[in-house]
Computed example of a mutant assay.
Amino acid sequence: MAKVLVLNASYEPLNITSWQRAVVLLIKGKAEQVEHNGKMLYPDFPLPTVIRLLHYITLPYKEVPLTRRNILHRDNHSCQYCGYTGDDLTLDHVIPKSRRGGETWDNIVTACVRCNVKKGNRTPKEASMPLRKAPRRPHSGLYFEVTKYLRSGGHQEWRKYLIGL
């Protein structure tokens, strides 16, 4: 079913919700419709794709856990050295652990087995294997949820409300 991006009163993304919940927030006067896809629920009531809350909500910061699944998702399930996409991907430390490279978002990337072995215990510069994209910590947990929808080709109208995607 259709999903709706929920924005805070300041236009920053808060959550993704169902279209039913979004409609309830609109009817109760707690949100306003910002974007719609042209489909109609009722005459003169388009199906929302982005809504904005009328009152600012403060949420506690939640850090995205550093897991294999999250790193694969961040790197779009592709080798950050050659671009290979497949099932046999590994995780590579940009600065090797033996050289005090840590377990951080900025130091771990997805790599195919071939590139991981070729790079070995060297830095990308020493191995002459530049990274396609510099690794970085995701902005929020919402980042993963939103990119899933954007990569599938849907909800492109969400892009203008997202920083860094």
Rank of each mutant, 00 (worst) to 15 (best):
K3S: 10
V4F: 01
L5K: 02
L5I: 11
L5T: 08
V6C: 10
V6G: 05
L7C: 09
N8W: 01
L14F: 04
I16V: 15
S18D: 11
A22G: 12
A22V: 02
V23C: 14
V23G: 06
L25Y: 10
L26T: 13
L26E: 06
K28E: 10
A31H: 12
E32K: 07
Q33L: 10
H36W: 11
N37F: 09
N37H: 01
M40F: 15
L41R: 14
D44Q: 08
D44F: 08
P46T: 12
P46F: 06
P46E: 14
L47T: 09
P48F: 03
T49P: 14
L54W: 01
H55R: 15
H55Y: 05
H55Q: 13
I57L: 14
T58D: 11
Y61C: 02
K62L: 05
L66M: 10
I71W: 02
L72S: 12
R74C: 06
D75C: 05
N76Y: 03
H77F: 07
S78Q: 15
S78H: 05
G83N: 04
Y84W: 10
Y84K: 13
G86M: 08
D87A: 09
L89Q: 10
L89V: 13
T90V: 03
L91F: 09
L91M: 12
L91K: 06
D92F: 00
H93T: 11
H93Q: 08
H93W: 07
I95D: 04
I95Y: 01
P96G: 13
K97W: 13
R99L: 13
R100H: 13
R100V: 07
R100F: 12
R100Y: 13
G101S: 10
W105V: 11
D106H: 06
D106I: 06
N107I: 10
N107S: 13
N107F: 08
I108W: 03
V109F: 02
V109T: 08
V109P: 01
C112W: 07
V113D: 14
C115H: 01
K118C: 01
P124D: 07
E126G: 04
E126Y: 00
E126M: 11
S128C: 03
M129A: 01
P130L: 02
P130H: 01
L131T: 06
R132L: 15
K133M: 07
A134T: 14
P135L: 04
R136S: 14
R136P: 00
R137F: 13
H139K: 09
E145Y: 02
Y149R: 00
Y149C: 00
L150W: 05
L150M: 08
R151K: 07
R151C: 02
S152F: 03
H155Y: 15
Q156S: 14
R159G: 06
R159E: 09
K160G: 12
L165R: 12
